[in-house]
Design a protein around this nucleic acid. Structure first.
Lengths: 144, 144
DNA sequence: CCCAATTCAATTGCGCGCAATTGAATCGAG
DNA sequence: CTCGATTCAATTGCGCGCAATTGAATTGGG
């Protein structure tokens, strides 16, 4: 493959990845709109539904996002009544996000989202699992 | 697989895709910084290097971006001296972007970028081609 | 115990993405 | 030829992402 070819938009991996990622978020958008959430907000809620009471730092480690993204996002979720933000008593440098009853209750309404997305892709669970594994492998290579 | 499992962050395809896409852009960032470009700006340049003199609409169709994104981005590239924007004479509704000599010359400096990224992924060209094909298939399913 | 280094979240600034709207130009049915 | 519908780019508004900086709290070496 020539350098010329490598510069071709349609032959690169990055652009399809970038386009697919945005298309995926677009697929979630109308579903999440019913819950009053954006996609990044939904990611934060997924973490909290799994492990309530996490710090900004922990959220950042799980989602690969920094405080510049998370702080305003968490403030919006707090304004929506989904969670509370409070300074940790043990370590006053850190801030913990905890679900409100309303935030916890939203989980049931969100339960139908993943299956709807799986259907939307038109792929089998096996195909999805393989693609997920391959993309994750790429991600790990890039993170190093 | 239960609904519970589907809701788990790490089992979903979307989050790895989202994380990998951002990691990929991050991998490009230092390389493109040497050219004075952001990743979306680089995508526009790739299109222009392949086909000079495209309208905002055509750029949007190739990159899946709308005028709300492209208009300010093209203005920045114009301010950088990479291209000119002008109203089409045939159809005064459309605007055409054309490379300046400087913009055309940048292609040589950009030639080393794709290979550097390929190395960065640590994947073989075959693995990359397969992943690209699979991601593209997903994208097409989601675009429908 | 002290203070320099580190670790936190918050803030600032900027460039996307994208929905929604605007306004100009063109098209096309009648 | 006309005028309503359509097609353009531009604009507005908002929520990310992320680099860089700030300032407060904590840590740890001496």
């Amino acid at each position: 493959m020539s350098t010329e070819d490598l510069l071709r938009l349609d032959l690169q991996l990055c652009f399809p990845l970038y386009a697919a990622s945005r298309a995926m978020v677009q697929a979630y958008t109308p579903l999440l709109a019913k819950l009053g959430l954006t996609y990044p907000q939904y990611l934060v809620m997924l973490v909290l539904w799994e492990t309530d009471g996490v710090t900004v730092k922990e959220l950042g480690e799980k989602l690969y996002l920094d405080s510049g993204t998370l702080t305003p996002l968490l403030k919006r979720l707090e304004a929506l009544g989904m969670l509370r933000r409070e300074r940790s008593k043990e370590d006053a440098r850190s801030v913990t996000a905890s679900l409100t009853p309303q935030g916890r209750a939203l989980r049931r309404k969100a339960a139908s989202v993943p299956e709807a997305i799986v259907c939307r892709t038109g792929l089998t669970l096996e195909e999805l699992a393989r693609l997920r594994r391959d993309v994750l492998k790429l991600f790990e290579k890039l993170s190093k």
